[in-house]
Design a protein around this nucleic acid. Sequence first.
DNA 1: CATCTTGTAACC
DNA 2: TGTTACATT
Length: 929
Amino acid sequence: MPIPRPDPQGDRVIAHVDMDCFYVQVEQRRQPKLRGLPTAVVQYNDWKGGGLIAVSYEARKFGVKRSMRGDEAEMVCPGIQLVQVPVARDKADLNVYRSAGSEVVSILSTKGRCERASIDEVYLDLTDAAESMLSEVPPEALEDIDKVALKSHVLGLSDDEDQEKNVRGWLCRSDALRQDKLLACGAIIVAQLRGDVLKETEFTCSAGIAHNKMLAKLASGMNKPAQQTIVPSSAVKDLLASLPVKKMKQLGGKLGTSLQIDLEVNTVGDLLKFPEEKLQERYGFNTGTWLWNVARGICGDEVKGRVLPKSHGCGKTFPGPKALKTSASVKHWLDQLCEELSERIQLDLDQNKRVAHTLTLHARAFKAGDVEPHNKFPSKSCPLRYGVNKVQEDAKRLFDLGLREFLGSHSKSWGVTSLAVSASKILDTPSHILSIYKYIQPAYPKFITVSNGDTTPVAGADNLQLTPILPLSSVLHVLGSPFNLLSVSHLTQERASHHITLRQPSRYLDSVHPKSITVASGDIIPVSGSADIHITSSITLRSDHKTHSSEWHRHLGRPPLNILRKALPDVSIREFTYHKVVTSADVTFLEDQPHHSQPSGSLLSPLLPRPDVLVTSNLPPPLSTPLPPNSPPLTTPLPHKPPITRVYTRHPPSSTIIWEMPSSYDILQPADSTTTSTAHPMTNYVSFHRLSPELRQFALSLSSITIPTSVQEALQHLGWRAAMDEEMFALWGLVYKPSSPPLSPSAYCDTDYAGSLDDRRSTSGYWTYFRGHLITWRSKKQSVVARSSAEAKYRSMTVVVSELTWLEGLLDDLGVKLSAPATLFCDSQAAIHIAKNHVFHERTKHIEVDCHFIREKVKLKKVELMHVPATESIYKVHSISIYVIMEKLAGVLSDVSSIKNFKLCLALSLSIKNFKFHEKLSNLLSRED
DNA sequence: CATCTTGTAACC
DNA sequence: TGTTACATT
Ligand SMILES: Nc1nc2c(ncn2[C@H]2C[C@H](O)[C@@H](COP(=O)(O)OP(=O)(O)OP(=O)(O)O)O2)c(=O)[nH]1
Ligand SMILES: [Mg+2]
Ligand SMILES: [Mg+2]
């Protein structure tokens, strides 16, 4: 239930976007011949043709409804195309819809705060975008308005013969209320976004544009498919007066029924006559207030800036005779569910750097002979430990715990009718903890004997994570080999989610000329016509369809390209599309310990009959025909190989890297588990409680001067405002040289060594710029205890270097030739010294690897290190973490993910930090007196 | 015990 | 921490 609150600002511009018959569109994109046909997506189909969960608009005309049985749908709509939901591990696998949803979100989240409300819908807060549009290019000044926008429905606007002209008139009215003008701007922005979505994903959607979430949601459903509806304030009263209560979100269930039956309220308007107190009395304070507001079209619920899910779950029902009656069958299904869940949280970790902290088990069960089941199977939860086996083990334990409670003293037989596991309390994680492992290559043999007896050189090794697209089933163990192998097709797909740029000349060979087993590394390189295909004459392109850059960037967890484009107004950016490219040069192995098959085969699914790709130690001749310009990606499947007689077995994974986390990983635990965390997860790593006693004392002693609690508050105070201006100038003015900004990225890194005296781990942050534009930023707690501030600083530099390397790679992809090496600003001469010099103090394994990495870069002139004197005010090595301050502000600001807010927040944080620094100084001085 | 799966949020 | 409602039911 939304928190009742009066509308904070009545002129927000909120949009709700909902995909049209979403799963159907996803399937139609996969099988274009289904387009235009009556189609439905059906889940399982052995029993009565399965259940429908999405229905195309063509099929709806025949009366086909969601939740119908497949058989029934075929009766009312002969010839209906029924597409089955993918199945994995004998259960529905919704990942393809999840990632299609993410594709859409990555486009819709570019114009304002975006809340992913379900797999196919988002709320957008377009207030800022609409206001800048109104002040810069108001609709009335536009000569040409997006056709999509002209097709908007405007509630309360009388019909006209030329409806488009009519709508244009409404959108461009110069004497309209400011509120309506803002909505008009919002509608134009939404029209643009919907056009982008269609262009980039081939999906259509519908949208509602209004002043709050409730009305926007209502509107998005009023005209479907592929349309948008605007709700001006003036239309709200009439709209609600005739709206059946059940149509309103949250009133479709019991509460709505109670309104109808107990209060004889049939339309939302009918609610108007009930005083707030009456509603509160009957339905509780919060719900009562909410209802009272709903009747008036008021909804202060804010658009949360959240595009990732807060939990992952998977479950399965075992209806009727399928009920599970033995502990072994429960274990089997729990294992399946946990395997899927593990893959999904691992993917979240890889892609989003988030860690789930709670595992919950839900089940439904009955007792034999129980007619009136009086108790339910209780849900149980426990801390989540990463690793498939551990999740499985814990889930089973939770089940057994629940079962004992469910059965009580009875020892009757039972049946389980549903099982579900979920992972929740997902927190953001320091970004580079895992990346350290990338640079620690396990020792691997120089040669390997493969299944046909050949000896072949090993070109390289790598660590990979199991993911949905790189599942256990693609991991092969070769008898006699100390390594396990991956199939190239799976590996390629896996690699598609990592950006690996081929810079060095490598050997490539064609998988059409295989000779012996090994595994190739997959890669992504940009392809523009034929321009980039010169890397080798023997590349095999494998891609089912072109993948748009936006999708790659989402995979890469990167900010949208438009930020970068903004930085390059005068540079023509090459349009490009990424294709998946398979190269088969480097041998990639997984795991440094071989695993052997287990005699009891429940974990072993069918063996892969043969390896996918064969590679020889000798380069085969290059492809005789180079790929022609603009050739479409080859979709040829890998060629059929003769069966190989060697036995391959699979094994449970043990490569889950999080197991190998240093024990310091537990710093991610919330400082105080009873504290409710704020919306901003940083509080879980850096928080007031975690400060040393001295620092805590100090922070508390600052009460004499009011420290602003929000950016807004600070902006109103002249002193703070001036301080922020100064910081803003220092941060952005310093870098930005409008006359001729250098074509090279730069970055700053900062470390608060003493910011965490209690655990001696440093917090570091970085921000990267390109021509004065902030491109990426992050702050995190370092995972390793540093021995000196120089080392702490040095560590944060290695992180930012990898970020710069990425940025350079991206710019290169975009065809931007850099005019100078990237610059890394750092305030620690000592750290720069470490980076520039080959000799330095003995280090742990971790830092040796890191150091090596950064020194290579410096040597290669990829990065230039610059010392920024502390007086330049960007970096002052204070003992107060600006992240502690930022975290507090961020809690209030609620959205540090937008660049504008981030800048303001950072500037204010630095101001506060400076202030505290001076306070501390004067404290120290006075004490010395 | 045959509408399945999965996500959010409030309340306790 | 566990339960319930709602969405899409
Ligand atoms: N498993 C399951 N999935 C559902 C159910 N209802 C909807 N979904 C899935 C399939 C839908 O395509 C997707 C989005 O739901 P919507 O309510 O937005 O409906 P849909 O997009 O299909 O049609 P629409 O054009 O929005 O009316 O969510 C359901 O009852 N069970
Ligand atoms: Mg939809
Ligand atoms: Mg929807």
